[in-house]
Design a protein around this nucleic acid. Sequence first.
DNA 1: ATTGCATATGTTATGGTGTTACACAATAAA
DNA 2: TTTATTGTGTAACACCATAACATATGCAAT
Lengths: 138, 138
Amino acid sequence: MTAHSHTDQPALTKNQSLVYDALTDAKAPLSAYAILDGLREHGIRAPLQVYRALDKLLELGLVHRLESLNSFVACSNSECGARETMVFAICVKCNKVSELADDRLEAHLGALAAADHFTVHAATVELRGICGQCRSDA
Amino acid sequence: MTAHSHTDQPALTKNQSLVYDALTDAKAPLSAYAILDGLREHGIRAPLQVYRALDKLLELGLVHRLESLNSFVACSNSECGARETMVFAICVKCNKVSELADDRLEAHLGALAAADHFTVHAATVELRGICGQCRSDA
DNA sequence: ATTGCATATGTTATGGTGTTACACAATAAA
DNA sequence: TTTATTGTGTAACACCATAACATATGCAAT
């Protein structure tokens, strides 16, 4: 496993910037097609333009994919670059996502897997529940 | 959160049994459409027949969905019914999946979320890596 | 400057995943 | 036996993602 870092980024291309800005402006995860719809007036016309930009942004660690939603979020945790495994807490009420870091979780998962003779390369950890704000409102 | 139990099951209907048997016979996760293709000669003709059976089997806890693969597996861990959070270790080489249980993981994730004032209802934990058998073979 | 290469872009078409809407059948309960 | 619930069948559709091919752009190394 190799921790990436998104310090010292290469400049983003036009399409990459459009997609990245769409995600950073959004208050919740966006699907590729939602991004597409939001960028039509900026000249983005086809899914592939979005998916290619997303591929690059994922590779740079600027964006994460939420498997359980088939959607994408801009990275919001400065510690992300230093860790392998991030946890995404997805509020089922307001759809906001918190990106949580924990030093021990990766070790915990690694040990659990090792007991089954399994070597972990990557982990997907997505929590569904209620965020603090929505709990207060209720 | 409510732990389910799949002891004392209601009898499965024909379509539910067909889908469940397809998954228990498979050595790796199957997509809904792969199940569909495998059951055409048994009279299953449309995606919805598969998805409806899967919905019921998921509700009964007999089957799990792997979000990162858009696929489904038969439950293979007897402790599953007693726990909220299972871990799926997916071998990228042979595609086999181990379903792992760990008492402390749920608490660990709950505490991590609670520090962010988030209340967990459900968790998706999927590991990608190499299983013991494939590691030995290499 | 020109060649060569890697990367990014644009477009069309296609394939994989999942649901909506509607009609009908089987089962179980009152 | 009426009613309610659950399961089934079919068609059409919507959403997610990639393949194939052509073109363009940036950046070396000569």
